[in-house]
C-alpha cells in the first residue's frame, strides 16, 4: 500500500506540451479516476506513473520515494491494459505467474498466489486455458489477476473496460470497485466514460487538453464544476449552455444549467421549440432548440405531460442552480 504524489508533472512530445503540469496527492488506498476526452493526455499521465513514459519535468513519488528514473518493474506497480495484453502463447496460469517467475518467487508460493487470485476472480476452471479460448470478460479478469498476484503498491488501469460490451462493462465496473475495496490498493484509473468515472472514483481528475480542470469527489465535481468544460463533460445528458446575452439580468459570458434543473413552463426565461422527446420510462428527455439555434435538453419526470414536436415552450429554472462562466470558460462565483 502506498501514496502517490505527482508534482508539477509535465510531458512534451517535441514542441507539443501534452501534459501541462499536474499536481495531486493520492492517499493510501484511494481510488482516483482520470477522466477526459480522447487526446487530453490522460493515458500519457498514467503511463508516466507506470514508468512507460518519461516525465519531461516534475516529479512522480510513490510512497514518498522519487521514481522518475526507476524502471516500471521496480516501481511496485501493476498495470491493466486496454486490450488486456495477455501473452497469447501462455496459459492463464502462466500469464498470471510470469511476473512472479521473473522476480524468482518460489514455485509453491507462485502457485498459491495464483490460486488465491483465481479464486477471487472466479477463474479457477480456466487456469490451463489459453487467452484465445476465453471470452472478453474472462480475459479482462485474467489481466486483473496478473495485476493482483504481484501484490503491488499501486494499481494502474488504462481504460480496462472499453473493449467490453455495455452490459459486461457495468458488471465488471462493480467487480473492479468491490475488488479495490477488498484489497485496499491505491488505484489510478483512466477512462473517457464519465459514468465509469462517477461510479468508481473516490476522487476524479477531469482532464482537458493536458490540464487538470478539476480534481475532487465525483458528486462535488458534478454539483460544482470549476470550468465550462467540466460542466459539459460530466453529467449525461450534458449541461445546457446558453449565451448570457439572450437572458435578462445576466452579465457577459455563458450560463450553464443542468437538464434536471430546467422545467417547461408557460412563462419562461427563454422560449424554445420542441425538436423531439425521448420517453425513457422513469424519465423523459425533451430536446428543444432556442431562438439562436442552441440545443437545450430538459429532463423531467415521466408523470409530467410530454409536449408535442414543433410546440413552442417557455423554459424556467431556479437562479440558484445557474452556473456562470466567463469568456475563457472559467466559473464566475
Amino acid at each position: 500500500m502506498a501514496t502517490v504524489t505527482l508534482e508539477n508533472l509535465k510531458k512534451s512530445f517535441g514542441k507539443t506540451e501534452v501534459i501541462q503540469g499536474i499536481d495531486i496527492d493520492i492517499a493510501d488506498g484511494e481510488f482516483v479516476v482520470i477522466v477526459g476526452p480522447s487526446g487530453c493526455g490522460k493515458s500519457t499521465l498514467l503511463r508516466m506513473v507506470a514508468g512507460l513514459e518519461t516525465a519531461t519535468s516534475g516529479e512522480v513519488r510513490i510512497d514518498g520515494k522519487r521514481v522518475n528514473d526507476v524502471e516500471p518493474m521496480d516501481r511496485d506497480i501493476a498495470m491493466v491494459f486496454q486490450n488486456y495484453a495477455l501473452y497469447p502463447h501462455m496459459s492463464v496460469f502462466d500469464n498470471m505467474a510470469y511476473g512472479l517467475k521473473i522476480q524468482k518467487v518460489a514455485k509453491p508460493e507462485i502457485a498459491e498466489r495464483v490460486q488465491t487470485a483465481a479464486k477471487l476472480l472466479q477463474l479457477e476452471p480456466y487456469l490451463q486455458r489459453k487467452p484465445r479460448e476465453l471470452s472478453g470478460g474472462q480475459r479482462q479478469r485474467v489481466a486483473m489477476g496478473r495485476a493482483i498476484v504481484r501484490k503491488p503498491a499501486v494499481f494502474l488501469f488504462d481504460e480496462p473496460l472499453s473493449n467490453l460490451d455495455a452490459k459486461l462493462r457495468v458488471q465488471m465496473r462493480l467487480e473492479i470497485k468491490a475488488l479495490q475495496r477488498e484489497l485496499g490498493v491505491t488505484s489510478l484509473y483512466v477512462t473517457h466514460d464519465q459514468v465509469e468515472a462517477m461510479t468508481l472514483a473516490d476522487r476524479m481528475i477531469v482532464m482537458n487538453a493536458g490540464v487538470a480542470d478539476q480534481i475532487g469527489a465525483p458528486l462535488d465535481v458534478y454539483a460544482d464544476p470549476a470550468t465550462e468544460f467540466v460542466a459539459g463533460f460530466i453529467g449525461s445528458p450534458p449541461t445546457n449552455f446558453i449565451d448570457a446575452a439572450l437572458l435578462d439580468g445576466e452579465r457577459a459570458g455563458r450560463i450553464g444549467i443542468r437538464p434536471e434543473h430546467v422545467r417547461l413552463a408557460e412563462q419562461g426565461r427563454i422560449e424554445a421549440v420542441v425538436v423531439y422527446a425521448e420517453a425513457l420510462g422513469a424519465e423523459t428527455l425533451v430536446h428543444l432548440r432556442a431562438g439562436d439555434g442552441q440545443q437545450i435538453t430538459v429532463r423531467q419526470e415521466s408523470g409530467l405531460a410530454i409536449p408535442t414536436e414543433g410546440q413552442s415552450c417557455g423554459l424556467a429554472w431556479d437562479s440558484a442552480q445557474v452556473m456562470r462562466f466567463d469568456e475563457a470558460g472559467l466559473r464566475q462565483r
Partner: peptide, 20 residues
C-alpha cells in the same frame, strides 16, 4: 502493450525476446 506488459512484469529486453 505486450512489450509494455512484459516491462511492467519485469522482463528485460532479451527475456521478453525469448519468453514472449
Amino acid at each position: 502493450e505486450l512489450a509494455e506488459a512484459a516491462r511492467v512484469d519485469g522482463a528485460k529486453p532479451m527475456r521478453f525476446f525469448f519468453d514472449i
